[in-house]
Design a protein around this nucleic acid. Structure first.
Lengths: 221, 221
DNA sequence: GGTATTTTCCATCAAATGATGGAAAGAAGC
DNA sequence: GCTTCTTTCCATCATTTGATGGAAAATACC
């Protein structure tokens, strides 16, 4: 009982991964409340009872999904940051925005789950928030940003809320792509909308990189 | 049967308004799915059956809420635009952002319902979108903006997506205030967060007003 | 092959929820 | 006072949904 190995373990992990992938899709599309364990199970092609056997309750499945996304997203971030080595500030912003938007467009459930947490729709009937990993991730993003652009940070509060602004903007443009694109009479999956959205983010944040605001209250060194 | 007048009608309208106010609050807090007709009725202090008598189905209540918000929001917008008469571009942006943020902070259900529509969580079990008024409102905002800043519009697509960016940003900062503020270690209702969020939006969009981008593709005159 | 463990599914439960019918209460008009 | 229309509530239904127990099937272990 203590030791499981060989196919037993492998197949178990395999099922778990398949379940998490399906749950990511469904939760990301419908949100926590509207998602049913039956829908997830159906997507995997198993019974809800089997689902419960592997993952436990609905809340635990959601938690596992967030954990999976947290790890993947952090990996993406570190990778992107690694590429910024030796870049000018402007070039770095262009690069990081481009890479991130590309990633978010490819995995729309990521910005969507972030938005669900933002508006507090990641709660069950009891009202307990379920997005444990989201605040942690946002913290990580801001710390990363501060480390990269420490020299330009004058007012920490202002810098942090601008970080949030960038995250929010990228999240709404990618996670809300179908709605936004439709509103503009475009195709959400088309290259045109994606390029426009990405360029808009760059347009807004590049000026900040150009004339980096060195304000008097720069006591952090 | 054809004519209802006097107190009968008044009290009916009164009840309707009270119901819509309660529904605004609950729908705005929990979203469409998580909101129960019982919760709305309880907030008004009536039975769900009375609720149904006055408003019809849950979907119809939601529709009435959106209609109410649409009208109020448009009124706010027109009023704010009216004040821009004769202002410089920069001053106008500062003014409109300030007024709008103030309004959205005071009525958080407005940006929240917009965000719900953005992520497509305004749907019932069937999957039918319920936010009829939202696209119409966004259209109005963009047309208004274009009329005001027609002279600076070079690339219409770019201008429109920047409008959406501003709307998205203001919506996430106000509609998601509790989450955003908590993430920054602030109080969502405090003056500090509200001022920072408002200033952030201004910081991002004022540069666009300054060096208004007159690009070659300016064929609209 | 035989046993133990794991995995899978069927059946079912209890709670929540949107909706409705019908009775009772209230208001209006005469 | 009587009738008609409106308003309100109680009771109830059908459906959905998260969860679980237990049997059957599959797999691993020796």
């Amino acid at each position: 009982m203590a030791e499981r190995r060989g196919k037993g373990r492998e197949s178990r992990l395999g099922t778990r991964q398949r379940i998490i992938a399906a749950a990511r899709e469904v939760f990301g599309r419908l949100g926590y409340r509207a998602t049913t364990t039956r829908a997830i199970a159906a997507r995997v092609g198993i019974d809800i009872s089997t689902l419960a056997h592997h993952m436990g309750s609905k809340a635990q499945i959601y938690r596992a999904v967030l954990e999976s996304i947290y790890e993947e997203h952090v990996r993406m971030l570190e990778e992107a940051v690694g590429r910024l080595e030796g870049m000018e500030l402007e070039e770095a912003v262009d690069e990081i925005v481009g890479r991130t938007m590309e990633y978010l467009f490819r995995h729309p459930e990521v910005p969507r789950l972030l938005l669900f947490a933002t508006v507090g729709l990641d709660v069950g009937k009891g009202g307990e928030a379920k997005s444990h990993y989201v605040p942690r991730f946002l913290d990580r993003v801001r710390r990363q940003a501060e480390r990269l652009w420490a020299s330009t940070v004058a007012d920490k509060d202002k810098f942090e809320i601008l970080c949030m602004a960038m995250v929010n903007l990228m999240a709404t443009f990618t996670g809300g792509a179908p709605f936004q694109a439709a509103s503009l009479g475009m195709n959400a999956d088309g290259e045109k909308y994606r390029r426009l959205a990405t360029d808009a983010v760059k347009t807004l944040f590049l000026p900040l990189a150009r004339n980096s605001p060195r304000l008097p209250s720069d006591a952090a060194r």
